[in-house]
Amino acid sequence: MYWTLFLIFVRIGTFTIGGGYAMLPLIEREVVNRGLITKEDFIDLFAVAQSLPGIFAVNISIFLGYKLKGIKGSTVCALGAILPSFVIILAIALFFSQIQNNVWVEKIFKGLRPAVVALIVVPCMTAARSAGLTWKTAGVAITAALLIWLVRISPVYIIVTAAMGGLLCKLNIKKW
């Protein structure tokens, strides 16, 4: 059983390129279609894993492992999810420092860097859309971005303030 869980998450960790949410259909296929948990439970897990800090895929693997086999299960699942990227990136890190200054590699990375920025702008716009920004919440987003960018405030403070602001706002409105 532990071995099966481990292998499931190794597969999930290996075949998802491009991060968290790209993993979702694969996770669902592996765990729901195998009958490990029900579809409803999976949706609940998803909602909670999403509202926790940290890495989404790791959160979901720990949750699932815990639900199925307790603490041991969650360790096994998390290790499975982490291991493939850990091994691949470590191999690249060992190797990259040697080729970093190669002329050709430099040319390739000159092309990659602006594209990376574009690849961050796009999910920013998607997130803005799915968060359903109004004028007021857009103000929050813009203020947060400017404070981090220009004032170099640590995002930790932004996160804490935003969470407290949300709490105060909502609870006050309910009182009226």
Binding site: A127, A131, V140, A141, I142, A145, W149, P155, I158, A162
Partner: peptide, 9 residues
């Protein structure tokens, strides 16, 4: 909304 700002930053 703050996390949208974080990505923008």
């Amino acid at each position: 909304p703050a996390s949208v700002g974080l990505i923008a930053a």
